[in-house]
Design a protein around this nucleic acid. Structure first.
Lengths: 242, 242
DNA sequence: TAATCGGGGGTACTGAGTGCCACACCGAGG
DNA sequence: CCTCGGTGTGGCACTCAGTACCCCCGATTA
């Protein structure tokens, strides 16, 4: 199911009819890659996707958001993962595993990730938007570490520093892989990078248990009446990916 | 001279007539604090400042940039500081000192910094813009560390991780101080926070020399014909602050 | 068939940001 | 004296992102 989900998210192909959200993402990337981000207007995207202009903003809060359609769901995944983490385990290992969730998302669609990287690298607006995405991941990791280090006097400081270090190490390996065009094994590269953080900040030798058992079959999405569509979709995506 | 510069930068007061840039910053903050950032239009700002609308964008590239009028100059200061750093010194200590340059800027105008913090905290657009500002600092620090760690096999990774850790520690102490309304000594708080980074990543016991001798009297600003005004201003500010 | 509800389309509007031109000022030179 | 080039500024018009509002259509229910 996870693979089908990934497929629908970016390519829109598969068995069923592609959703409007997928059609918008596909049309946007087609135009962005051929004529650039700033040279493409919302009207261009919606006319290619064959939908109304108003519908674009039902699924994406801004023009930049369509470039990162999967991060909202991944952030929710990370939050759920950390909430279910073993309270006795090494928190540094846990946030490293949480970061690996993001990596899996990138590695799941190498072509899409590399194309987005090339786009993001040369469009300042997208680079800034990506910063806000990364920032939310970092704050989520820091929040988890803060609760675990609550007993320490410098707990909050340690939490912020370790979260920043984990994100930096993760991004270092990820960007190196993206720069190479998606060649080689990202997984081990990220493992090596995160190892540096674990060696300096981790507990030392903790049991690598941390088993997470999520076996839910039914997904419930609760939202206020009037909630924008894109927020509902991200909630559903997050729930489905668990 | 540095103090006069700080004064002119935010309050516009002092001996000489306030520049147009200062008038715009002052008018913008007056309106932002009384009716909010999003409720204030560029027309409101320029009409209060008594200048034309077109002139605003001559000095600031966007509406958000007027909230951070001093960071461009501070970034140039940091770049110059690191370029003049002792090649034999502890690079971790050096980037910590570079981060202290940013702190000095905040501590130089507590009222302005606290007001901006309150504004930034509750306006998403400004929070994102601040992220891009912090990101440029972090990349500058990482660039310095990369050249110093070029010999190590994991030099680039270490550089990115340490830069992220320094920024996180710096921001931890700074935000705590800003949240308190500017009470207490930020300097020692940042020192304590950065000490955690130095203790884990620094050389251990290096000589605290790092003397920087900048005694230039003449400032030369070179720019292409047609360079936007705000870029020229940021260059001059950066040169004057050295 | 009428009523209701929710998703989608269309229209008009606000406001940020840009390009272009006109005007005012100022020093240099005929 | 007038002219010329350069520079800083204001004004006008334009594009486009994002939003508010209303209408249409299809599906469900009485």
């Amino acid at each position: 199911m996870s693979e089908v989900h990934e497929q629908e998210r970016t390519a829109g192909g598969g068995a069923g009819r592609p959703t409007m959200r997928d059609a918008l993402v596909e049309a946007a990337f087609e135009l962005f890659s051929e004529r650039g981000f700033e040279q493409t207007t919302i009207d261009d995207i919606v006319s290619l996707a064959g939908v109304g202009r108003r519908s674009f903003f039902r699924y994406f809060p801004s023009k930049e958001a369509v470039v990162f359609p999967d991060h909202d769901g991944c952030l929710a995944d990370m939050t759920a993962f950390l909430a279910a983490a073993d309270p006795a385990g090494d928190p540094v290992e846990q946030v490293c595993d949480a970061a690996r969730l993001v990596l899996r998302m990138y590695a799941g669609n190498p072509a899409f990730s590399v194309g987005r990287y090339r786009l993001t690298k040369q469009v300042p607006t997208l680079r800034i938007h990506e910063l806000s995405v990364v920032w939310r991941y970092e704050r989520t990791l820091a929040g988890h570490l803060r609760t675990r280090y609550a007993a320490r006097s410098d707990g909050a400081l340690r939490a912020d520093v370790i979260a920043a270090a984990v994100v930096a190490a993760h991004n270092f390996a990820l960007r190196s892989w993206l720069r190479s065009g998606g060649e080689g094994d990202v997984g081990t590269a990220v493992d090596e990078a995160l190892q540096l953080v674990v060696d300096t900040w981790g507990d030392g030798a903790a049991g690598t248990s941390g088993g997470s058992s999520q076996d839910d079959e039914v997904v419930v999405m609760v939202a206020r009446r009037g909630t924008p569509m894109w927020r509902v979709v991200q909630g559903v995506e997050a729930a489905l990916e668990g």
